[in-house]
Amino acid sequence: MVSVCITAYNHEKYIAQAIESVLAQKVDFDYEILIGEDDSPDRTRAIVSEYHARFPDKIRLFLNSRENVVYINGRVTGLWNFYNNFHNAKGKYIALLDGDDYWTDPNKLQKQIVAMEANSDCTICFHDAQMLMDNGAVKPYLSTLGVKRKSIYTIEDILFRNFLPTGAVVFRNRFIREIPEAAYQILAGDWFLHITNAQYGDILYIDDVMSCYRVHQQGLWTSLGQAGMIKEKIHIYKIMDRFLSYKYSDLIRKRLADCESELIRLKDSNHA
């Protein structure tokens, strides 16, 4: 019924907790765990291999080579690993989890699949999460981002900004079988994925906190810095505009203007 796709790289300190949080799920359906390990220099590969040996009927392990790594503007990404899991997923639904995050509710999958089965017009389901900062502080994810809660979101909402915590997302395994070329040009693979799926249905929100998202400087997006993140958003919007055949150009043009204004304000504040 469900393929839980975990991507892992340099997650030695976290990956066991991520896997255990999936194994702890209480469900009345079958699920598989796909772990894509991107040839980490730390002990991540050894740890996931140990789990695979312990749970061979539950865990499918993909030990990737660095030769498959996708680069964007000279920066190493985990995109090949991310999408390779989807290529191999057998479930009707796919649940996402990064190897440095974890689920906090053993009923998470059950709640989301029941909700998706009851809402056939929705292609994505997500919930709120807690943000665990480097200093140990915990913040509410959606409130911290300033996202207004509602039961249904649309492609216009997710185009405006990516507000879905990766580990909170379940989506129907129908629309991502063939990965378009544009997907490998965007650093934020999860954002592209959500936009792609949201073309075909709504985004269902469950008002519950059921996962933990770690915020640390080793994260690819965080490591860009404020200016780098804004520039990457501009790059993403331009690619998404072409990918969506300019159907949402009015919204995208407004977001591009907002990003350009943010860059100017940031540059002015740095010179002050």
Rank of each mutant, 00 (worst) to 15 (best):
C5I: 11
C5L: 14
I6T: 05
A8L: 08
N10Q: 15
E12R: 12
K13S: 12
I15F: 05
E20W: 00
E20K: 14
S21I: 05
S21N: 09
L23Q: 05
Q25D: 05
K26S: 10
K26W: 00
K26E: 13
D28G: 09
D30S: 15
Y31H: 15
Y31G: 11
L34D: 04
G36S: 13
G36E: 06
G36P: 01
D38Y: 09
D39L: 10
D39M: 04
S40F: 04
S40G: 09
R43A: 14
A46Y: 04
V48A: 14
E50S: 13
Y51T: 07
H52V: 00
F55W: 11
P56A: 08
R60L: 01
R60S: 07
L61K: 08
L63V: 12
N64P: 00
N64A: 07
S65R: 08
E67S: 12
E67C: 01
N73E: 13
R75G: 00
V76S: 15
G78Y: 02
L79D: 09
W80D: 15
N85I: 06
F86V: 04
H87L: 12
G91R: 05
Y93A: 09
L97C: 10
L97Y: 05
G99D: 09
G99C: 12
D101M: 06
D101F: 02
D101N: 14
T104E: 02
P106L: 05
K108T: 01
L109D: 06
K111N: 04
K111H: 01
I113F: 07
A115N: 08
M116C: 08
E117M: 07
N119R: 11
D121I: 02
H127D: 08
L132D: 03
D134N: 10
D134M: 13
N135T: 08
N135K: 03
V138D: 02
V138F: 02
K139T: 02
T144Y: 15
V147C: 07
K148H: 11
K150F: 03
S151P: 01
I152A: 04
I152Q: 02
I158S: 08
L159K: 08
R161A: 14
R161M: 13
G167S: 14
A168N: 13
V169G: 09
F171S: 07
F175Y: 15
I176R: 03
R177S: 15
A182H: 02
I186E: 01
I186C: 02
L187K: 01
A188Q: 10
A188L: 06
L193G: 04
A198D: 07
Y200D: 06
Y200G: 05
G201Q: 06
L204H: 11
M210T: 10
H216Y: 10
Q218R: 13
L220G: 02
S223Q: 06
L224K: 03
Q226D: 11
Q226P: 00
A227Q: 13
G228N: 09
M229P: 00
I230Q: 08
I234M: 15
I236P: 00
I239V: 15
M240L: 15
R242Q: 12
K247Y: 04
S249W: 02
L251M: 07
I252L: 13
K254D: 12
K254C: 08
E260M: 11
I264L: 15
R265D: 14
K267P: 00
D268I: 05
